[in-house]
Simulated scan of single mutants.
Amino acid sequence: MARAIPLYEQTLTDRLRVLGQDHPDTLTSRNNLAGAYQSTGNLARAIPLYEQTLTDRLRVLGQDHPDTLTSGCGCLRLQPGARTIRPAAVS
């Protein structure tokens, strides 16, 4: 997985440039990169990406969208004992 991380990073960079930060495919790329970091044990990089993805998906897709719910699961997996997810304020 460690060899794949640069590819995930490049994909996210490209999607940000071409599609913009709120496009669902960009949000998916960010979530995928977080998962890659998580799988290599780099939680310091995974958690902020999961949190940002969750916050953005709540704002863009809504709380009941399947992708939003998937993002919430990523955050919960990394925070043992957590009962709720408190993303940054959504404007």
Rank of each mutant, 00 (worst) to 15 (best):
Asp56Leu: 12
Gly35Thr: 10
Arg15Asn: 03
Val90Gly: 10
Tyr37Phe: 15
Thr84Cys: 08
Arg57His: 03
Thr70Ile: 02
Ala2Met: 10
Gly35Ser: 12
Ala34Tyr: 00
Thr68Asn: 00
Ala36Tyr: 04
Ser91Gln: 14
Arg59Lys: 14
Ile85Glu: 08
Ser39Leu: 10
Ser29Trp: 04
Asn31Ser: 08
Thr53Leu: 01
Leu78Met: 14
Pro87Gly: 07
Arg17Gln: 15
Glu9Leu: 08
Val18Met: 08
Asp14Cys: 05
Arg77Tyr: 10
Thr28Ala: 15
Gln52Cys: 02
Asp22Arg: 09
Leu33Glu: 09
Leu58Thr: 03
Ile47Lys: 00
Gln38Met: 03
Ala88Met: 07
Thr11Leu: 02
Ile85Val: 15
Val18Cys: 05
Gly72Asn: 06
Thr13Ala: 11
Ala46Gln: 12
Ala34His: 08
Tyr8Arg: 13
Tyr50His: 14
Pro66Gly: 05
Gly72Arg: 13
Met1Cys: 13
Cys73Pro: 05
Met1Arg: 12
Leu12Arg: 02
Thr70Asn: 06
Asp14His: 04
Leu61Met: 04
Gln52Leu: 14
Glu51Tyr: 00
Cys75Glu: 07
Glu51Gly: 05
His65Trp: 02
Pro24Trp: 03
Pro24Cys: 10
Ala4Met: 10
Gln79Pro: 04
Val60Gly: 03
Thr28Gly: 14
Arg77Val: 06
Pro87Ser: 05
Leu69Glu: 00
Ala46Met: 11
Ala36Pro: 13
Leu61Ala: 00
Thr11Pro: 06
Leu78Lys: 05
Ile5Cys: 06
Arg86Cys: 06
Gln63Cys: 07
Leu49Asn: 14
Val90Ile: 15
Thr55Asn: 09
Cys75Ala: 01
Ser39Phe: 09
His65Thr: 06
Leu76Pro: 02
Ala88His: 09
Arg59Cys: 05
Ala88Lys: 11
Gln10Arg: 15
Pro48Ser: 01
Asn32Lys: 00
Ser71Leu: 06
Gln38Pro: 06
Leu54Gln: 10
Ile47Asp: 01
Thr53Lys: 05
Asn31Ala: 08
Asp25Pro: 09
Ile47Trp: 04
Leu27Phe: 01
Thr70Gly: 03
Ala88Val: 01
Ala89Trp: 01
Ala4Asp: 13
Leu12Tyr: 12
Thr68Gly: 07
Asp56Val: 07
Pro80Thr: 03
Leu49Phe: 12
Asn32Val: 07
Gly81Ala: 00
Thr84Asp: 15
Arg77Lys: 13
Tyr50Cys: 01
Pro80Glu: 07
Ile5Leu: 05
Arg15Tyr: 09
Asp22Ala: 10
Asp56Tyr: 09
Arg59Pro: 08
Asp25Ser: 15
